[in-house]
Design a binder for these strands. Structure first.
Length: 665
RNA sequence: GCCCUCAUAGCUCAGUAGGUAGAGCGCGUCCUUGGUAAGGACGAGGUCACCAGUUCAAAUCUGGUUGAGGGCUCCA
């Protein structure tokens, strides 16, 4: 007999050669039925895996997070099988699990796969799922029957898989295959017990990709799908996708008349009055928090000499993303001609970042450690050239406004600065009902400036700050800015999509490059530490995020129009005007609709524009000096005085309650 | 930048085996003066993204450019 340990600490006796499935059966028939895979000594394995004496075993059911990944990985096999049936010429490459599903990259020597092919593929998949064919793990040495069978699966000449196999053999790893029915694929596993688990699978989209992600390699077709354990979960997911489409900020931006783009300025948004209002609200909310946090707002130029960008390191590391100005002159002999090659004594460049400007500002005075930490903030408009294929609504533009700031401080102030910022940023996000914040730490990238020692110092300072605050974070090796490591804030919206907003970047390089100094307590000159930070990140992107997060139904303090006043007929236009003016005097963003339409139509219009309140006035209200209020969710209140209405609503952004001052003796 | 797809009125879209365009919404005028998600009539609006080519004839076919959408890569 062998004995294994369960997660609750209990020990079970099993016959030698028993599998994880045997264990599940021994524990109970319910568990055996629900079992998907097992975790043995912290490794995910198939239920069919035999257990050894002393193993620590957990049986995974659909409730375990890892189980869903296993299901989806199995679904990728199912899809690959189906695709080979529909497209016999296809060659498989890799098929991993991704955040909300899976994909398989496929090489097609001819033809293509489009969403029109999905029904045919899904039909095959349903068929295979119905067969409930068991997933069988096989290990091969590369010369046996299993291998031969595998080679035959997609034509026998799959160079992509051959490359993968060569890699496995080179590393001396075990080569495992998984088989269901006649289909067999190179795979590490584990998988669900049989294809019967894969009844709630749906293909979602198809796109192009490259072998190993490199553009110079073969072009592949990437077919995406998703899978769930239950029909309900799949339905909810598909519903969520629909919802996301409806919330698309590019669509809402047009419907709510917030912003547009034109072909003459690709990637540069034009904010309409309502959009500009929202943009300014974001800005003024941020400004209202700055002075409390010890910031001083500054303003620095958009265009600075090219030479400055050489000094900062941007020219060497960021050139492709920068816009440069170019001098043009009329030809002296022929005024109709323009010289494109006019020599410039001082070529200029448009700023892609605000930091060099703030360094110049810093240099305009002498500084002492007694002033530290010094915090300069700027709503800085920066321009960055983007590859044409990456522009995307407000999420990725070529000119954007950063709620930027730079802290100048001594090395031992770093930790408290970061601690302050984490609290600050999370407070801001929660004001927009974004409470799911994930923090990532990114370290030195390949292209970077500064010594190893500097990077080591900076990275460990950030780690220390996070650890001491007890923050959980994800580590992204090699993902830092070229001048320093960074902490990024990733936020999940109501649809669980993740967005990068805030960033805190530590920089020991730029202060040195610009010769920044301060006088320390010892009376000597020292180089300050510089901390770059932005909370929204880009106001444009953040605006896009909250448009989607709120689906255009902004909370009252953010709604471009807060109240629409609707007279029942032309006879009450004057009264409607008086109500409107009164609300205007109270600081309400109010619009009166005096057009020649019926009440129902105007209500509908206000509601499509997601205006929080519609105030309807007619005979009744006019004679009583009251209003009727209909809120965005359809609730109606009649015979309300304006004072009573004003008493019900809060026009201000959410505010953190200040701590009371206790009396001290 | 790379791959795939697309571009017709302000918006959403229809159309043509190649013979220079149509709907709904919106907009304007008029009728209607109304009580909580669409009252009615009439009207104005388009070099069919741009540039070439094929053709007697191109919005339609071909090539290119630009922009947009979905991905890859990159990123705030």
């Amino acid at each position: 007999m062998i004995s294994v340990k369960l997660p609750d600490g209990s020990v079970r006796e099993l016959a030698p050669g028993a599998t994880a499935m045997d264990l599940a059966e021994q524990i109970g028939p319910g568990l055996a039925k629900a079992a998907v895979a097992a975790r043995v000594n912290d490794k995910l394995v198939d239920l069919s895996r035999t257990l050894s004496d002393g193993d620590e075993v957990a049986i995974l059911t659909k409730k375990d997070e890892d189980a869903l990944d296993i299901l989806r990985h199995s679904a990728a096999h199912l899809m690959a099988d189906a695709i080979l049936r529909v497209f016999p010429k296809a060659e498989l490459t890799i098929g991993p699990v991704v955040e909300d599903g899976f994909y398989y990259d496929i090489y097609l020597p001819e033809g293509k796969i489009t969403p029109e092919d999905f029904p045919a593929i899904e039909k095959e998949m349903d068929q295979i799922a119905k067969e409930a064919a068991p997933f069988k793990r096989c290990v091969s040495d590369g010369h046996d029957e299993i291998f031969a069978r595998y080679k035959a699966i997609d034509g026998g000449n799959n160079k992509f898989k051959s490359e993968l196999i060569a890699g496995i053999q080179e590393r001396g790893e075990e080569m495992s295959f998984y088989r269901h029915g006649d289909f067999i694929d190179l795979c590490r596993g584990p998988h669900v017990p049989h294809t019967g688990f894969l009844k709630n699978v749906k293909l979602t989209k198809v796109s192009g990709s490259y072998w190993r992600g490199k553009a110079e390699n073969d072009q592949l077709v990437r077919v995406y799908g998703t899978a769930f354990f239950t029909k309900e979960e799949l339905k909810d997911y598909l519903h969520m996708m629909e919802e996301a489409k409806k919330r698309d900020h590019r669509v809402l931006g047009e419907k709510l008349d917030l912003f547009t783009f034109t072909e003459d300025a690709p990637g540069f948004p034009f904010f309409h009055p309502n959009g500009a209002l929202l943009f300014n609200l974001l800005m003024s909310y941020m400004r209202s928090l700055l002075s409390r946090r010890g910031y001083q707002e500054v303003k620095t130029p958009l265009i600075l000499s090219e030479e400055l960008w050489h000094r900062s390191g941007h020219y060497d590391n960021y050139l492709e993303n920068m816009f440069f100005t170019k001098l043009k002159l009329r030809d002296e002999q022929d005024r109709t001609k323009v010289r494109e090659d006019a020599p410039e004594e001082r070529p200029m460049a448009v700023k892609p970042m605000n930091c060099p400007g703030h360094c110049m500002l810093y240099k305009s005075h002498q500084h002492s450690h007694n002033q530290f930490p010094l915090r300069y903030a700027e709503m800085g408009l920066v321009h960055r050239r983007e590859l044409s294929g990456v522009r995307h609504g407000l999420f990725r533009v070529q000119a954007f406004t950063q709620d930027d700031a730079h802290h100048f401080c001594t090395p031992d102030q770093i930790e408290s600065e970061i601690s302050m910022l984490i609290d600050f940023f999370t407070e801001v996000y929660s004001a927009f009902d974004l409470n799911d914040v994930r923090i990532e730490l990114s370290t030195r990238p390949e292209k970077s400036i500064g010594s190893d020692e500097m990077w080591e110092k900076a990275e460990s300072a950030l780690k220390r700050a996070l650890d001491n605050k007890g923050i959980n974070y994800v580590l992204n090796e090699g993902d830092g800015a070229f001048y320093g490591p960074k902490i990024d804030f990733h936020i999940r919206d109501v649809l669980k999509r993740s967005w990068q907003c805030g960033t805190i970047q530590l920089d020991f390089s730029m202060p040195e490059r610009f010769g920044l100094t301060y006088i320390g307590a010892d009376g000597q000159r020292h180089t300050p530490v510089m901390l770059h930070r932005a909370c929204y990140g880009s106001l444009e992107r953040f605006l896009g995020i909250i448009i989607e997060n709120y689906a255009g139904s902004f909370p009252l303090w953010l709604a471009p129009v807060q109240v629409e006043v609707i007279p029942v007929s032309e006879k009450f236009a004057d009264y409607a005007r008086r109500v409107t003016e009164r609300l205007l005097d109270e600081g309400v963003r109010v619009h009166v609709n005096l057009s020649d339409d019926r009440v129902g139509y105007k209500i509908r219009e206000a509601s499509l524009k997601r205006i929080p309140y519609a105030i309807v006035v007619g005979e009744k209200e006019q004679s009583a000096g009251t209003i009727s209020v209909r809120s965005r969710d359809g609730q109606e209140q009649s015979d309300l005085t304006i004072e009573a209405f004003l008493g019900q609503i809060d026009l201000n952004p959410p505010r953190r309650k200040p701590a009371p001052i206790a009396a001290e003796e």
